[in-house]
């Protein structure tokens, strides 16, 4: 080497680097792409500093109201799923996708009536994630449990494992989808806490928004890890419970007055 010191010739290196980068990134190395957010890109990705969850006050959940269910169906394009020709009512009810559902309970002893919406409980230790053979069922860093449709093979083992029956399998061809809710025959899906809203910086889910708009305010959405969030404060002061707390799944969705 003719150079006196062993520092490489930066100019030369820069030149080569640029050329190779320009030509190489263009055509040689598609596998090693850089992540380049668009100029107006809103989101920098999830972080485990937050954990999203819901608190549902069943006392405020009204008898014949289905505002949350309707809003969810609209928001996530579930209302675009058409009923196949020739499918019976019973089959349609058992086979159509449902992310959130209204349940009315009656205490066997006291006769007390409770209304509540059921959806994916976004467990900290989700059984559906444990059993998924391909890892398509996963939990994001911010606690949202969802399905990566790209790797879901439709084995339905997660549906067998879920203690809340929160998941739906798509039993038919789907013609229409929304941009934010891809959906097609043969994969499993469930509530994802309106993940597209969260990623866009919105701090509301469709169900919560609808419930509030109807004046019930039975659903509170927020960050469980932020002690100043409305959700965390409510959870601290009110006694709430997890459904099937015996399984120790530490759900992200909690209920009061059940």
């Amino acid at each position: 080497m003719s150079n006196k010191d062993d520092r490489p010739d930066m100019k030369r290196r820069e030149f080569i680097g640029k050329t190779v980068l320009a030509a190489g990134a263009a055509s040689v190395a598609p596998g090693v792409l850089l992540t380049v957010a668009k100029a107006g890109g809103e989101s920098r990705g999830v972080s485990s500093d937050v954990r999203y969850g819901l608190l549902i006050d069943t006392n405020k959940c009204a008898d014949d109201c289905t505002a949350c269910v309707d809003a969810c169906n609209r928001e996530n394009g579930i209302d675009l799923v058409e009923r196949p020709k020739g499918q019976s009512d019973d089959d349609w009810n058992a086979q159509r996708p449902q992310w959130i559902r209204k349940v009315q309970l009656k205490d066997k002893q006291t006769g007390e009536i409770t209304n509540l919406p059921m959806m994916c409980q976004h467990c900290e230790f989700p059984p559906c994630v444990d059993v998924c053979p391909t890892g398509a069922s996963f939990k994001r860093a911010d606690g949202i449990v969802m399905v990566d449709r790209h790797t879901c093979i439709g084995c339905r083992y997660c549906m067998m494992a879920c203690p809340y029956k929160a998941r739906s399998f798509i039993h038919q061809n789907v013609a229409q989808q929304l941009v934010n809710a891809p959906r097609g025959k043969g994969c499993v899906e469930s509530c994802n806490l309106c993940v597209h809203r969260i990623d866009a910086g919105d701090m509301t889910t469709a169900c919560q928004e609808a419930c509030e708009k109807d004046g019930h305010q039975a659903i509170v959405f927020g960050d469980l890890k932020d002690p100043d969030s409305k959700l965390a404060k409510l959870l601290k002061t009110k006694s709430s419970r997890q459904i099937r707390a015996d399984l120790e799944l530490n759900t992200g969705v909690r209920y009061t007055n059940v």
């Binding site: 596998g31 890109g41 920098r44 994001r140 860093a141 990623d199």
Partner: peptide, 24 residues
């Protein structure tokens, strides 16, 4: 023409798994 599928695949993982939206 050559690589659109690779580009899409790369960014879809970022979006679905890490919640990075608005990618190129």
């Amino acid at each position: 023409r050559r690589y659109h599928m690779e580009y899409l695949k790369h960014d879809r993982v970022e979006t679905v798994r890490q919640g990075v939206r608005g990618l190129k």
